[in-house]
Design a protein around this nucleic acid. Structure first.
Length: 530
RNA sequence: GGCGGUGUAGCUCAGUUGGUUAGAGCGCACGACUCAUAAUCGUGAGGUCGCGGGAUCGAGCCCCGCCACCGCUACCA
């Protein structure tokens, strides 16, 4: 099947602000998005997966000033860290986009022009109480005059001055009703549901027009026709999703194929930008809206927020080195419901990697495959007949695809994995109850049926586990004699997997298939010095 | 303050339109087995379902009140 016959699926992460080093939050988002992208590829979609960096804005400029370096040098340097993270996490991206890329600058200016031509942009004066130290404007009620007669921000206690700045405004207020109607008619537009309620209630209040340009610094995309203004970073940043699809070339094959995006995966802190401003910009520009925005939760270190001052900031690559990449990926997606906050800890990760991976799945593979190696001449045994227990087990494994599809469709990764592990658990119970090591002496035909059924469940589980654990799934499938796609296999995610993609799930493992010598796939984590 | 959500076994959570002894995973205790990565399987302990009222033959599920915790409440990203 070539790309043009497949249904397109365009998925993005938020782009990262490379103001510092990547942390576990960046890893979490991109790993989850990668699992989603891989799932869709294995399910036969023509996937385009975009991630990258958001490099403009005052913060970057200030960080560069502080380090006494050119902002371009800084952003080039830091962006490399984010780029390097992708292969380290086995991310199957199609493009790493930077908002400093030339085509993106063009795209940002193009959407600006469209919004302008729609009559939604006007020049006005932004006034408010500005805190130089916080680099932020505050509303009157967010400030108070202290005993010394000076006005301060209530929240941060920094002095504020009355400031007026000429900026361009976007007529956001005009889109209130259309946004509400869109949420109403497309309940899947924002997930999880709780986030949708928050966003809708925000919009239901009064929407004020948005200041979308700045003149106090110049590290940004110049406003067309007004080189003294740079675009507010969110206009620039959000547009990356369009750039990644080929905008402004709206007649290009790429744009026509991939826009509108199917899913923007973001953190819950930026839900409003993606679920309010972004659709409003697109409506103004007469461009189709993305189908869904999903706001995931945050990860905490043993329940505590990561912070430099507490000193519990964790480098994701260090975790990968300690526990293994697939183990880390599995932990993130199995342990924490994606839409909720969660926490990670050494004990939590070790628990998952030993109990779920080494003991449940890894050991099931090892115990069954080593029996096959010793008693079935290293070939998938031929079952002369399958009894009710066998068929019941196989039926449960066959039901998993539909369950995983519906769970992935709404980013309930942990539920999909949970249901796979329920079947793995049942298979371990089945294996123990059937006692093939006894049948070996008493009823070899029956032993063959039990081993065959077990390998078949393992095959199904291995295929389904690939989006989350690409390498381990592949290893298991090799142990099960399931070839990869060979020459047609593309580099980015096991497309055209032949026996390894979801289209193969319904075709039972073939008796007589030669199997390699079994080796453990998931090592146990042993405490050093224990 | 306003709007929304949550509160069920030691921990993380399921509990459909109210109906017999409230469930799962992990952890713990005991036992079994030996194919397997000291893995697996079985059994068990443990809950006044946040608190107090109410309508019902009957409520973890419905109504009222209270308490606790969490999220959102616009221009740093």
């Amino acid at each position: 099947m070539n790309a043009s016959e497949k249904t397109p699926y365009y998925i993005t992460t938020a782009i990262s602000y490379p103001n510092g080093l990547p942390h576990i939050g960046h890893a979490y988002e991109v790993i989850a998005t990668d699992a989603m992208a891989r799932f869709k590829r294995l399910d036969g979609y023509d996937v385009r997966f975009l991630t990258g960096t958001d490099e403009h804005g005052q913060k970057m400029q200030q960080t560069a000033d502080k380090e006494d370096m050119d902002v371009r040098v800084l952003t080039d340097r830091n962006t490399e860290y984010f780029k390097d993270l992708q292969p380290a996490l086995n991310i199957s991206l199609d493009r790493f986009i930077r908002t400093t890329d030339e085509d993106h600058i063009e795209a940002a200016q193009a959407i600006w022009k469209r919004m302008d031509e729609a009559g939604d942009i006007y020049l006005d004066t932004y006034t408010g109480w500005y805190s130089v130290r916080d680099e932020a404007y505050y509303a009157e009620e967010e400030t108070e005059v202290a005993d010394d007669g000076i006005r301060y921000s209530r929240e941060t206690g920094t002095p504020v001055d009355w400031t007026e700045e000429e900026t361009f405004f976007f007529r956001l207020s005009a889109y209130r009703d259309r946004l509400l109607a869109h949420y109403e008619e497309n309940p899947e537009f924002i997930g999880p549901a709780q986030r949708r309620n928050e966003v809708a209630s925000f919009v239901r209040g009064e929407l004020r027009d948005l200041s979308i340009s700045r003149t106090t610094f110049d590290w940004g995309v110049p406003v067309p026709g007004h080189p003294d203004h740079v675009m507010y970073v969110w206009v620039d940043a959000l547009t990356n999703y369009l750039t990644g699809a080929g905008f402004p070339e709206t007649e290009s094959e790429s744009y026509k194929t991939y826009w509108p995006a199917d899913l923007h995966v973001i953190g819950k802190d930026i839900a409003r930008f993606h679920a309010v401003y972004w659709p409003a910009f697109l409506m103004s520009a007469s461009l189709p809206l993305p189908k869904r925005v999903y706001a995931h939760g945050f990860l905490f270190n043993k329940g505590e927020k990561m912070s430099k001052s507490v000193g519990n900031v964790v480098d994701p690559v260090a975790l990968v080195n300690t526990y293994g990449l697939d183990q880390f990926r599995f932990f993130l997606l199995r342990e924490v419901p994606f839409g909720q906050d969660g926490s990670y800890s050494h004990d939590g990760i070790v628990g998952r990697m030993n109990a779920d991976l080494a003991n449940d799945l890894g050991n099931l593979a090892q115990r069954s495959l080593s029996m096959v190696a010793k008693n079935c001449d290293g070939k998938v045994p031929e079952p002369s007949s399958l009894d009710d227990a066998d068929e019941e087990l196989l039926a449960k494994s066959q039901a998993l695809l539909a369950k995983c599809r519906s769970d992935f469709e709404v980013q309930d990764f942990h539920r999909a994995l949970e249901s796979i592990w329920t079947v793995i658990g049942e298979t371990n119970r089945y294996f123990s109850a059937q006692q093939p090591w006894v049948l070996r002496k008493t009823d070899p035909e029956r032993m063959n049926a039990v081993l065959y059924s077990t390998l078949e469940v393992l095959r199904v589980a291995s295929i389904l586990v690939q989006p989350v654990m690409p390498d381990s799934g592949a290893k298991l499938l090799t142990l099960l004699g399931q070839d990869d796609g060979g020459a047609g296999d593309d580099a980015d995610g096991g497309d055209d997997g032949g026996a390894r993609d979801f289209a193969a799930l319904g075709t039972r493992i073939v008796p007589g298939t030669d199997l390699p010598k079994p080796t453990p796939v998931f090592p146990r984590y042993e405490e050093p010095g224990a």
